[in-house]
Design a protein around this nucleic acid. Structure first.
Lengths: 161, 161
DNA sequence: GCAGAATACTTAGCTAAGCTAATTATATGC
DNA sequence: GCATATAATTAGCTTAGCTAAGTATTCTGC
């Protein structure tokens, strides 16, 4: 029954190490695309379609200035396009370019291939447990995030007034 | 049978988000101790006892210059002590000061309390799965790390000649 | 319908983490 | 004892993250 406490310690041990692995692999991927935050932006736009700076910042849980800067790098490399929203010209919409889409697919395939070789050394049961555990944990994280915003405890202001 | 592939995607979604949570909490913790890499150094020395710059850099999977800099911040704050090794005066040994030990315990307790409230919203089965999955995954990661070093595929040179 | 408040984003300026390349200091080996 | 190897540091760069302040647009209220 100490599994929540144990989980906490295990998360603190495991996640940073895994992130270092991923960061390293991303840099190796033919040099260009680079970093985990950049990859996450490509991934989000790929799966959810175009979104605004604010929308991206919120879902990635970073501030707007941080998002502005990270996006700028991707735009410079021609992986994203900026477009002023027609309905509200304060809003900047971001979308993947064809290059950005191809780049995302390429990186994702490499990353998954790499992770897959690591995960393949685990038993089927362990893989199942990991997938199940992570799915539940991600849900729990997002609930916590939403709740903090609602109670004003969070780090960034709520989007809808 | 797609669970390894699914795991890979899930890891890419979940870990960075969880890291952002932890990073945020660490900064909030009465301001001082700061960041995930710093916390990891305190944690390692707490659990494994004093170690050298090289030893720390290797186990944390960063380069020596990175470790030098991060450690310097902790030494400045009086959380770590440097000591030249008597047997090999090139080697710098790091150990926790009493302050460092107290700081580690304090941070760890806060982090675990925080994570525990998140994890508590998961079912007992999910918690169990997460703990099991992460334990196995950490093992798999470390095997991969060791193997890469052995085959010279890795990023940093092997320690033992 | 325009002044003032609110919103979306950017700019400026900082800190920390990460890297590589080059130095310094100590150990080892022939 | 000189050449080479090893442990750590320094220098110099990039990216990510933050806050505070500025700009441009939209909304509100009278």
């Amino acid at each position: 029954m100490t599994s929540d406490y144990e989980c906490a310690g295990r998360i603190l041990d495991t996640f940073p190490q895994a992130m270092r692995f991923m960061a390293h692999d991303l840099r190796d991927t033919s040099g260009r695309p680079g970093t985990v935050p950049q990859y996450r932006i490509l991934s989000y736009l790929y799966h959810h379609g175009p979104d605004s700076m604010g929308g991206l910042a919120e879902c990635q849980n970073v501030t707007l200035p941080t998002m502005t800067k990270t996006v700028a790098g991707l735009v410079e490399r021609g992986l994203l396009e900026r477009e002023t929203d027609a309905n509200d010209r304060r809003v900047v919409m971001l979308r993947l370019t064809p290059d950005g889409e191809a780049m995302f697919q390429d990186i994702r395939d490499r990353m998954q291939a790499r992770l897959t070789t690591i995960i393949a050394t685990m038993t089927a049961d362990e893989q199942e447990a990991l997938a199940t555990g992570l799915r539940a944990f991600l849900g729990a994280l997002q609930r916590a995030h939403a709740e903090e915003k609602a109670t004003g405890h969070g780090h960034c202001a709520a989007r809808e007034g």
